[in-house]
Structure formats: structure tokens, C-alpha cells
Amino acid sequence: MSAEKTDKTEFERSPSHFGDRITADGSGGWPVEPGRYRLVVSRACPWANRSMIARRLLGLESALSLAVADPIQDERSWRFTLDPDGRDPVLGIRYLAEAYAAREPGYTGGVSVPAVVDVPSGKLVTNDYLRLPAELATEWAGLHREGAPDLYPAPLRAEIEEVSDAVFRDVNNGVYMCGFARRQATYDRAFTALFDRLDALSERLATRRYLVGDSVTVADIALFVTLVRFDAVYHGHFKCNRSKLTEMPVLWAYARDLFQTPGFGDTVDFDHVKRHYYVVHAEVNPSGIVPAGPDLSGWTAPHGREALGGSPFGDGTPPGPPPQDERVPPLG
């Protein structure tokens, strides 16, 4: 999750401070190498979830290892208390902040996920949450599994970027604008933009299975990570309550379609999601009470979206099951 800050009236998402690129040719000093880097995530975080989905769909599990932080942060932010002795077993650190400090001594800014860390040096390479999925799809192509989908096809990139920009501004970021608003007018603007955009996306997806083209792209990944958290968190916690996802028929079917696609739902841990938002955001939920709902059983219900045509993996194939140590609990 990117560093966030609020003042008395507006929510502002801080840009990624470390934007280095890991490239196939190593031109920026960070070459793609299997096993060299570690992707640090929180299963609670929608921005990290994007990279987790892309990594799964592309079959990069053995090339880019995964570290999962505790969904509950403390004053030093993301921590590895889920691991034995409270240390990441590969990086040997207790806090992601240690990799930030190794990269920039004295760094005092936000500590965010996803973060890619260089294992040999222990230094953070990048926390560019917006660009990382597309770069996994392009720069890491030499390490993709056989049958991996093309998540960022060259002929569709302009349209993908146009759709993704709107999704980011009004939906991904829009729910935070609602949740952290400190003035009614600020909230009202964000609320209106959010649901206007969701209505437009519903109209777009009423006649097509995916946002751009006939298969899954990074644009679908971007929208999914907010939709999958919508009823569990954003509808109540962030006051995005005109409609639940389950009350928006097209988007609800679309989200179920993606959730049931290998690589999507098998990255989602609703327990981590709810505990993070309701416990960490004390200014929004001072009691720290984590709600028992919603009912999650609907996520596995038939969606009927196959009738619209298209195929999630294009000419490719689905990924295999997640590694044993990366599996999330079944829906309960």
C-alpha cells in the first residue's frame, strides 16, 4: 500500500519514492535475474495484490520469491511477524523499513508495499506499485511460464492505459478519497465520481467479458483488487454505500468471474483484508472492532460471463495451483 497522508480536508496518495526499473537488459542497473529479488506484499493491500496476481498468472513464483507481511502494522509499518522469530527467512529482517534504510540511509518517508528488494544487498529496488504489474508482463517475459497470458499486449496498451487511469483515479483511489475525507464537500465529490465510474464500467462490461480485448489484462487486475474488497471494507468502513458490489449485477458477475479464474481469487485473504483496514485505520474505526460479515459464499456462485465470449488467458493456459506455502485459507 502506498504511503498515505491526510490533512484536514483532503486525502493525498504519495507517489512512489523509489521508482527504479528492473529490466531485461539491465540498462537501469537492475537486470532481471531468477531468484535475485524478493517481492514483499501484504495480502490486505490492493496495490500489492495487483503484483501478486500478475506474478501468479505469469508463473513467476520460482523466479521472484514472495514475502508476506503481517496485515497489522505498528509504528514502524510493515513487519514480518508471520514468520518464525519475526524475521523474513530470506532477507533476515524484521521490518520492511530496514530494506528502505539499506537503500537510502536516514530515509524517513512512508514504507509501502508492494516492494521489490534485492536479496544479495538487502536494498529496496522499487515500490512503484502502479508500474510493477506491466513490467512483470514485459521485462520479465523471458522467465514466464509456458502458456502465460499476455497481460499487456502492445496493440492494446493505449486503451489499457486510458481505462486503467480512470479506474485508478475514480475507483482505486476514489474509495480512499471517500474514506479519509474530512469535509462533506470532499466526500461528496469523491462519492459521486466513484459511483459514476462504476456505473460507466458496468455499462462497458455489460457486453464484453473483459475491460480491454478478449482476455485478461492489467486493467482487469487493477479493477478487481478494489471490487474484491468493496463489500468487506469499502462499503461500510469507507462510506462507499450507495450500493454494495452484490447490488451491482454486472460488476458482481464480472468480479466473480475473475475471482474464480486461477491466479485471482487464490491470492485473496479476506481475514487479512478486514483486520488490516478495521484495526490499522483507528481514525476511521476507533473501536478496532472487525465486523463478522459479509457472507463470502457468493464468490463461488456461477456468473454466466462465459456467454460474452473471450477467454481469460487468450491463447495461453491457466497457471497451476499456488505453492503450498502461498495458499490462502478457503472461504468460510
Rank of each mutant, 00 (worst) to 15 (best):
T267R: 13
A200T: 13
Y210N: 04
S202E: 15
G213W: 02
R157T: 06
D165F: 13
A255K: 12
D266Q: 08
S243I: 02
E161Y: 00
L132A: 00
L205T: 11
D188N: 10
L198R: 12
A219G: 12
A134C: 03
N173F: 00
A190I: 10
T217Q: 08
C178D: 03
Y152E: 03
A148S: 02
R189W: 01
V268P: 08
K239I: 00
F168K: 14
D165H: 14
P149G: 05
L211P: 01
R208I: 10
H235D: 13
E135C: 06
G213T: 12
T267S: 15
R189V: 00
A181Y: 00
A181C: 03
A158C: 03
E146T: 11
A219V: 08
A232V: 05
E162T: 13
T267Q: 15
A154H: 13
T186W: 05
R242H: 01
P133W: 05
R209A: 10
R169Y: 00
L151V: 00
V218W: 05
G179T: 12
L132K: 08
D170F: 11
V175R: 11
A134H: 13
A154T: 13
R204I: 11
F264D: 05
T192R: 11
L223N: 13
G265C: 05
A190M: 08
A219D: 06
R145H: 09
Y210E: 01
D257T: 11
K239Q: 12
A193S: 09
S202I: 04
E247T: 03
E159C: 11
N172V: 15
G213E: 04
V175K: 11
N173G: 03
A181Q: 03
D188H: 04
A190Q: 14
L227Q: 09
D150C: 07
K239T: 14
A222T: 14
D196V: 15
V175Y: 06
R209Y: 09
Y234K: 06
L156W: 05
V163N: 11
L136P: 06
L156H: 12
V225M: 02
G179L: 12
Q260S: 02
G174R: 02
A193V: 03
S164D: 08
R229E: 02
W140E: 03
A148R: 00
R209S: 05
G142P: 00
S215F: 08
A137I: 04
A253W: 05
W140D: 09
R183N: 04
Y152R: 04
L156N: 01
F195K: 09
W252V: 10
R182I: 10
S215M: 10
F264V: 06
P262K: 14
C240F: 01
T192M: 07
G236N: 05
A200N: 14
N173V: 00
R145F: 06
V228G: 12
S202W: 03
G265Q: 10
V175W: 01
Q260M: 08
W140Y: 14
G213V: 10
S202T: 09
R183S: 15
A222E: 13
G236I: 06
G265S: 14
A166P: 04
L130A: 15
D231I: 11
A154S: 13
L211C: 09
G142F: 06
M248G: 01
